[in-house]
């Protein structure tokens, strides 16, 4: 187990290292004078431009050697200093991002976990059940093939515009200020529901299909046939098949995180939901490279943390990793 998690950790450390390096390169990729380009994009006051130009020139440390700039970047990251936003000047990037993170957690954690559990449960249920297999699984294929933004648009149009049941923009009513009251919580939940439902539905279809296909493999596996030959009840056979089929589904969850990030991004855009996805779009449109840098960094950190959590779950479920018999399975 230690070996298994150790290997994983090494990969994550290397990934983090690589990602931060890419991140550092972002503003330096830009053609021409990055600072000037950036500042001319943002319509700031003349004196603000002065201040910013000085600030960014120093921040990029164009006067120090490149390796120094790179080291400084690492030091800054560990101090939580991600620079100042141009688009939302003069707020520090870290503050803007920290404001967005809770919305992402609030949106993604339930969407990912609930769709995973519900999808797997349903897929296992539908497998080798002719009726369900023929009626409801096609729905699974349709859902998993639906582009997130399109489902979001459809839901927003149907439930927001046509039926007028749900609001379709923001995280809570524009007329409210965040505070602790039932009215406010209600507004938050109402705003959360449609974006949550779009992500949930697409993923639900994917997990259900995946589980259905996996469990059919498992039910045809030798150990299932042996149990059948020994007259084991169907329930036991399916239970074992499920336990084995769930392993690749856990691996699948970690492989899928990148796709989920993309899905969350466009969903947030459709619903103007103020998470990191929405923020990164604003940053790109306004060429706010410090903000892009910060968002990228946080996405990486989030994905790595999620991956590690999944690895731990995998170790708990698959005895073979605990025994160190499998060098690598996820």
């Amino acid at each position: 187990m230690r070996r298994y998690l150790g290997r994983k950790l090494l990969i994550y450390v290397l990934t983090f290292f690589l990602a931060v390096t890419i991140d550092w390169l972002i503003p330096r990729f830009m053609p021409g004078d990055p600072v000037q380009t950036m500042l001319s994009r943002a319509s700031l006051h003349a004196e603000a431009v002065e201040v910013m130009h000085g600030y960014y020139t120093r921040a990029f440390g164009l006067d120090v050697p490149v390796w120094r700039q790179y080291l400084n970047f690492w030091v800054a990251i560990f101090h939580g200093d991600l620079g100042t936003s141009v688009y939302l000047f003069p707020q520090p990037v870290i503050k803007i991002i920290m404001r967005a993170v809770p919305y992402d957690v609030f949106l993604l954690l339930p969407a990912i976990l609930l769709s995973w559990f519900a999808g797997n449960w349903f897929g296992a249920f539908a497998a080798r059940n002719k009726w369900l297999d023929n009626t409801l699984l096609p729905l699974g294929y349709i859902l998993t093939a639906t582009p997130y933004m399109w489902l979001g648009i459809l839901l927003a149009w149907l439930f927001g515009v046509v039926l007028g049941i749900f609001p379709i923009a923001g995280a809570y009513s524009f007329s409210m200020r965040p505070h602790l009251s039932w009215a406010f919580i209600g507004s938050v939940v109402k705003h959360w529901f449609l974006p949550f439902a779009s992500i949930f539905l697409v993923k639900f279809g994917g997990w259900a299909i995946g589980m259905r296909n996996m469990i059919i493999y498992e039910l045809e596996a030798d150990y299932s046939h042996y149990l059948e030959a020994l007259g084991a009840p169907r329930g036991l056979i399916r239970k074992y098949a499920f336990r084995n089929a769930i392993l690749p589904q856990i691996t699948g969850l970690s492989l899928d995180l990148g796709v989920i990030v993309a899905g969350a991004l466009v969903t947030e855009v459709v619903f103007s939901y103020p998470g990191i996805g929405y923020l990164i779009l604003q940053a790109i449109q306004n060429q706010d490279y410090f903000l892009i840098q910060g968002c990228f960094l946080f996405i990486i950190i989030g994905v790595l943390l999620a991956n590690f959590a999944i690895d731990i779950a995998y170790v708990i479920v698959d005895p073979r990793t605990r025994l160190g018999m499998v060098g690598e399975s996820a």
Binding site: H225, Y226, A229, L230, G231, R243, N244, L247, D318, P319
Partner: peptide, 26 residues
Amino acid sequence: RMSDYRFSRVSVIPQYAMNALNPTRK
């Protein structure tokens, strides 16, 4: 009905005995 007879009355050692055990159970 046959499953009542399997194991207790008729049993089998399958060809694939190497893979006959559920990998995730002791």
